[in-house]
Nucleic acid binder design. Structure first.
Lengths: 236, 236
DNA sequence: TTTTCGTAACTGGTCCTACCATTCGACCAC
DNA sequence: GTGGTCGAATGGTAGGACCAGTTACGAAAA
């Protein structure tokens, strides 16, 4: 039976995996689920597994950004899918500056497309959100608020682009940048940001996809200097 | 003291986290480390923690793609950093076809830049690898080998681009595509792939970065049809 | 001698119980 | 009210016992 076709025998997945799948399914199917999971001991009994197994499963889901576990407080359901991405990138490029450089490069690859797609597909409510973010930027009084409003602007555009993956990558970048910031490695937010955002915003509103793409490219190239990179670092 | 700056109090990290960090550090610092970790019981004693904690830590590192644990066999050190990315994307976009569409969109955003950068920076050995991949494609006799050679070509270019993050994303895409393939959802590999790859290869070799970028764009737009998408699906 | 095959000794997987550490809320003294 | 104290609930850690695959080695068969 040399020529016979052998079906792969799929090994019964470990208990932990089954529990993970079941929990993940519960979380996904019912996002309106109570934000808090039962206590470990209780949930373990309900699922018919030992507390050990249940713990390994929840730990795993925590790492995937689906749960948040805190001692004495319980286990909450969250939605932080970008967390594993950030963790991977930190492992992949340990050097902080180099990581930021590569991330900004990726941003330069992705965001102009986001702007282009947003110009083509943004709904009225998505458009409103982009505008609101821009208003926030104009109203921002301190450096903190500036960064938040800046990020929200880009986030809103990513959402409007309709590509969830691009959006997730952006979110991960934001997190890593914030982590760098917390450790004292900070850039600035140039005054020109407002004007450049306005150009992008206008292009998107007017459905000028090419203009939106180019405006975003320009903005990112200039903004890269705020973080201490040169345009060559990013675009070449 | 309204205006005072409150420093975040960093909570003492849990034991599991400490073990994770230590293990991760050991793996990173010493990649030539023995590919196999000591047995759980033994390692737990060495680290001075309970086997429970050690297990949760290794499970975590397994999910991050740094370890591979198999019953009766032991724990091996591996390098599959793209795995958590794939897992996240599967959670983010559960529908397979839609996920592939968005992934191909991202690919369309990233790979032309990769080609451009590769044309600018590829070393001689990187260039050789790209050429070797192309030769493989020409020599491929069955559909299986075609896909592998195709992927290797793109991978080689990503490596030559010098952006590890872009490379990681590509790797993740490949994995998800293969998973789809295994489940019966398969595309084809058009004959035109060879010619298009040759154009890209030539442009990179001749350091024509703009030409390389455009050739890659063209190639991806056409190849998207092999997977059942239209050019509009990808570029708009 | 060579091959086959069963067993023993690993390995990780699961379960159980007990106890520690943190959090939160109810209650009490001031 | 304000602040402190204590207890209940929660997750964190420990250690032991046993189950379930994997491997290696030696005995039995060819």
């Amino acid at each position: 039976m040399t020529g016979a076709s052998f079906e792969y025998i799929l090994r019964s997945p470990t208990l932990v995996e089954k529990v993970c799948q079941q929990l993940a399914a519960m979380l996904r199917v019912d996002p309106g689920h109570e934000a808090k999971l039962p206590a470990e001991r209780e949930l373990a009994v309900k699922l018919g597994v030992s507390r050990n197994v249940l713990r390994e499963a929840t730990k795993r889901l925590e790492l995937q950004g689906l749960l948040e576990i805190r001692q004495g407080q319980g286990t909450r359901v969250v939605d932080r899918l970008h967390k594993p991405i950030s963790a991977s990138l930190e492992l992949l490029v340990p050097k902080e500056k180099e990581r930021m450089r590569q991330l900004f490069q990726v941003r330069y690859m992705i965001e102009p497309h986001n702007a282009q797609r947003a110009a083509q597909h943004a709904t009225r409510s998505q458009m409103k959100r982009i505008e609101a973010a821009h208003d926030c930027l104009l109203a921002a009084s301190n450096a903190e608020a500036l960064v938040v409003a800046d990020m929200e602007f880009h986030r809103a555009i990513a959402d409007a682009s309709g590509n969830q993956i691009a959006r997730l990558l952006l979110e991960s970048l934001a997190e890593l940048r914030e982590a760098s910031h917390a450790k004292g490695y900070r850039g600035r937010t140039s005054d020109r940001t407002e004007d450049e955002h306005l150009v992008i915003l206008t292009a998107i509103r007017d459905r000028q996809s090419e203009a939106a793409r180019r405006a975003m490219e320009k903005h990112l190239l200039r903004a890269s200097e705020d973080l201490g990179f040169s345009a060559q670092d990013i675009s070449e």
